[in-house]
């Protein structure tokens, strides 16, 4: 049986404002995407059969959208390897450089 009252404070801590990705918050409308003229980038953790998975995806996409362009995972490097921080830091610039419209990012599992 409790006999004392306690007044306690919050054990968590506030979110770091600098890290909140305001650019992806809801306000920015995006134009409808025409996949036939789109560039799809594939980023990979270099495990969990992502290479096989992406081959299937690319083959199916190419069948449906003959003019679609791809940027392969080797252009970026391993997003879950020894150079993860450097690879992830370079992603925005790489995507801009390749004029990517979509980034497929896998594989968690």
């Amino acid at each position: 049986m409790s006999t004392h009252d306690f007044e306690v404070v919050w054990p968590l801590a506030r979110h770091a404002q600098a890290g909140v990705p305001t650019s992806v918050q809801p306000t920015r409308p995006r134009a409808a995407l025409d996949l036939n003229s789109a560039t799809v980038a594939f980023l990979w953790t270099y495990n969990r059969k992502g290479d096989r998975m992406y081959d299937i995806m690319k083959g199916t996409l190419r069948g449906e959208y003959p003019d679609i362009q791809f940027v392969d995972y080797d252009a970026f490097g391993n997003i879950h390897g020894a150079s993860e921080r450097e690879v992830v830091a370079a992603i925005p610039q790489m995507l801009k450089q390749h004029k990517a419209d979509v980034a497929v990012i896998g594989v968690a599992g």
Binding site: P21, S23, L43, M53, V107
Partner: peptide, 14 residues
Amino acid sequence: AAEQAGVRAVAVTA
């Protein structure tokens, strides 16, 4: 990182 670059991202997850 992709979203911050303005690129539509999709994750593949088990």
